[in-house]
């Protein structure tokens, strides 16, 4: 929307305070969440441990459906952290948004393409790194001309489209969700009590739907990251 952001320039790099602060809060929330659930780790799991193990099994199953079981050891932690972080980042803006003096400070960090691109970049870096590690640099490069040589440009282009679709899908979904949320909020303020009564259930419904979308997108982002990694790791 037409939100204004505070920027800090540091070492020639520009930092968007809203993105960074929200991402930090999301990361801290994720940490508090998993930390509090893993305090009493026992052979017979309690309630908290069961919740955590359920999430771990969930992300592990994403990997198992795409790669051999041994890959769980390699990418399990990454998939788990990615899923929880994206999930919390998606929900953060639904629960609270902070604006001070017209400047937005706290929102969903995933409503900004730079953040989602950073996350997609991590996934792609991991996929390329493990591809080189598995096939050697020669094997990694020769994978671009497989199965046939003339596909080279398409294969190279695919790397960029993967990156863009992965990041922009997440960004688009969450951004659109929050835009509509803000729009309904404006409707609520437009005609006083009458519009408020109409807009409140709408806002609640859309919030519920956004929670759903946030969860789905976290799942999709994790799954596609793992798909790109698995594609880089299989011999064509």
């Amino acid at each position: 929307m037409d939100d204004k952001y505070k920027f800090i320039d540091f070492l020639g790099l520009r930092f968007n305070v809203a993105n960074d602060l929200s991402a930090l809060i999301a990361a801290i929330l994720v940490f508090i969440f998993v930390f509090s659930l893993s305090r009493k780790v026992t052979m017979r799991p309690g309630k908290a441990q069961n919740v955590l193990e359920w999430i771990i099994d969930f992300t592990n199953n994403i990997i198992k459906s795409l790669m051999p079981d041994s890959a769980v050891k390699q990418f399990g932690l990454y998939a788990f952290t990615l899923f929880t972080f994206v999930f919390f980042a998606n929900q953060l803006g639904l629960i609270f948004q902070v604006k001070v003096g017209g400047y937005s400070y706290i929102k969903s960090p995933t409503t900004n393409p730079m953040v989602t691109m950073a996350l997609a970049l991590i996934s792609l870096l991991i996929s390329h790194y493990y591809s080189v590690k598995k096939f050697g640099f020669g094997g990694y490069v020769s994978n671009y001309v497989k199965p046939v040589g003339f596909l080279l440009p398409i294969n190279i282009l695919e790397e960029f489209t993967n990156f863009l679709t992965l990041s922009l899908r997440l960004y688009g979904n969450i951004f659109a969700g929050e835009v509509l949320l803000a729009l309904i909020g404006t409707v609520a303020k437009s005609f006083g009590v009458v519009s408020l009564v109409i807009a409140l259930p709408l806002e609640m419904i859309w919030q519920g739907f956004s929670v759903f979308i946030g969860a789905i997108q976290a799942y999709v982002f994790t799954t596609l990251s793992m798909v790109y990694i698995s594609r880089k790791l299989e011999k064509e």
């Binding site: 540091f10 790099l13 520009r14 930092f15 968007n16 993105n19 991402a23 953040v115 950073a118």
Partner: peptide
């Protein structure tokens, strides 16, 4: 600067630390 590349760096670092 307008692209706010610092965000990317920030996200990268915070994500690695979180992991």
């Amino acid at each position: 600067g307008k692209l706010a590349l610092g965000d990317m760096l920030f996200i990268l670092i915070s994500f690695v630390l979180l992991t």
